[in-house]
Write a protein that binds this DNA or RNA. Structure first.
Length: 506
RNA sequence: GCCGCGUUGGUCAAGGGGUUAAGACGCCUCCCUUUCACGGAGGAAUCACGGGUUCGAUUCCCGUACGUGGUACCA
């Protein structure tokens, strides 16, 4: 059996959708599992949709995810070039081969003529008429025109496209790795354009030619490609390459959490979660769309969450290292049905990885998020804080929410929980306690707690009376890790300062 | 409209002719902790519908419904 070769073939038109990353993941895992190659091919045949920077962005996303291709436009490889725009000269001959064999034909119809055809044949039973065996003889193409007319049009450099001539009354059958046998009736498939008037191939021709030339053995793509699969199957046969045709797998869609339908960037904006892997800065509109990375996800967690969206190992295991995924992944265990994206579950995955992560490493990952909030600190100090608050953080951005009081004195916007149950006893207890703090020589958690308890008992108070007030004084709210841990970390002076500030407000 | 694909709790899902139909997220209760969280123990909640086949269907077959994708010189 030949070496496994798979490919991810995005078109550089915008942000990298989480469904795209999952397709990359499944390709990558499959390739690694079988000791094969993973190729990145850029499908930029539509120059009108080309977006500046999109290709570099895709590469960066793959790097962040740790899904590095073996061959790519940047890296090169034995099958270069890996950008379809740079492969343009290669497609024409195959289109010609198809024409010569009678499996494709020239079509000279203008956009307006196509539009007229659709209007003319449109009816209640047939709302979207196709360019197919029922209509092609009524159009201007090398099937309906005489040889001389065609030669003349060609001679005059009349713009044309090349269309596949779909056969009549045939059933195209193929085996999909996920869905099993799938059938299509060729009468219902239209004569897809293979070569555009600008000489560029459409996806349909390009995907077949490139998969053949690049010796792709397994082709994984989204379910939305299933209806055009018969065109691709036929092309493999007509070009005489069917012995080398890759095995197909059409991946289920990732759906929006509410309602139905494919998950789109809009849903993310609407429901408040990212859809793209990384921030996407659209050069055309100037719009910035938040990505999972910038939202505070760890790449390992992002990948783990994605692998489980449509695949499972058949066991109860949910957390997998990339090595385990490679070992256990199999395309046959991919679900047929689409999966609704659940941001809560995504956050849970991230939390699991935060909990596992070494504190020092975690601190360096959290650092940029702190700096973005204007916090200036050292990895050393941040490591201590991260250790204390990590178990209540789902995202890297949560560390600021949960720990900002370590870096700045709280603003005490809401002291109501304190004032409600405040009294003279508490006032004098805290005044007295804060007054003797300077005498404490070993400023640490245990010593502080012992000292506090001693004063508390002398004043005839209980933990329930004074612990929460102390927390609010130090933190500014009813949250955070143990109070004495906080006091130990922020230091004696800051502790004194905060207690006095609040005492002054009571 | 037509064609393709799909349908197990709110979500991700295991399973597959006879089961108390796993597990996870989320939700609820309790324990731990005098905050929150982590951790622990419980709980509510599911086989879209109708026909077959069968001693027996969630599982197999056929319909229906619903959803979704496609029906471009976009991928």
């Amino acid at each position: 059996m030949s070496k496994v070769r798979v490919r991810f073939a995005p078109s550089p038109t915008g942000g990298l959708h989480l469904g795209g990353v999952r397709t990359v993941l499944y390709n990558y895992l499959f390739a690694r599992h079988h000791g094969g190659d993973f190729v990145l091919r850029i499908e930029d045949t539509d120059q009108s949709r080309f977006v500046e920077g999109a290709e570099e962005y895709i590469i960066q996303c793959l790097e962040w995810c740790g899904l590095i291709p073996d061959e790519s436009p940047q890296k090169g490889g034995a099958y270069a070039p890996y950008r379809q725009s740079e492969r343009k000269p290669m497609y024409g001959q195959y289109a010609q081969q198809l024409i010569d064999a009678g499996h494709a034909y020239y079509a000279f119809d203008t956009t307006e003529e196509l539009e007229q055809m659709r209007v003319r044949y449109k009816s209640a039973e047939n709302p979207s008429p196709q360019y197919d065996h029922t209509t092609r003889l009524h159009m201007r193409n090398s099937l309906s025109l005489s040889k001389d007319e065609v030669a003349d049009l060609l001679e005059k450099k009349t713009p044309y496209v090349v269309r596949i001539k779909m056969p009549e009354n045939e059933t195209i059958k193929f085996h999909d790795l996920i869905r099993g046998v799938v059938n299509f009736d060729t009468n219902l498939v239209d004569d897809k354009v293979l070569l555009k008037s600008d000489g560029m191939p459409t996806y349909h021709l390009a995907v077949v030619v490139d998969d053949y030339l690049m010796k792709i053995t397994h082709a994984f793509r989204g379910e939305e490609w299933l209806p055009s699969a018969p065109v691709h199957l036929l092309l493999w046969v007509y070009l005489g390459w069917d012995k080398d045709m890759p095995q197909w797998a059409h991946l289920p869609l990732i759906l929006k959490p509410d309602g139905n339908g494919k998950l789109s960037k809009r849903d993310g904006d609407r429901l408040g979660f990212p859809v793209f892997a990384m921030d996407w800065n659209d050069a055309r509109t100037g719009e910035v769309t938040t990505g999972f990375k910038e939202r505070g996800f760890l790449p390992e967690a992002f990948i783990n969450m994605l692998v489980m969206l449509g695949w499972n190992s058949g066991t109860e295991q949910e957390l997998f290292s990339i090595e385990e995924m490679i070992e256990k992944f199999s395309i046959e265990r991919v679900h047929k049905g689409g999966a609704k994206f659940d941001f809560e579950k995504a956050k849970w995955y991230n939390q699991q990885y935060i909990l596992k992560k070494d504190n020092t490493e975690l601190a360096s990952l959290v650092m940029p998020f702190m700096e973005a909030k204007g916090v200036i600190t050292t990895v050393d100090f941040l490591t201590k804080i991260v250790a204390l608050i990590k178990e209540r953080c789902h995202l890297l951005t949560d560390f600021w929410e949960q720990g900002h009081f370590f870096f700045a004195t709280p603003e005490y916007n809401d002291l109501a929980p304190l004032t409600e149950k405040w009294n003279e006893t508490k006032q004098s207890f805290f005044t007295k306690w804060v007054g003797q703090l300077s005498a404490i020589t070993n400023w640490n958690h245990d010593a502080l707690e012992a000292n506090f308890n001693e004063h508390m008992q002398q004043a005839g108070l209980k933990k329930g009376d004074v612990l929460l007030p102390l927390r609010i004084m130090l933190v500014g709210g009813k949250f955070g890790p143990g109070v004495f841990d906080i006091a130990a970390l922020i230091g004696k002076e800051e502790t004194e300062k905060r207690v006095k500030i609040v005492l002054g407000k009571m």
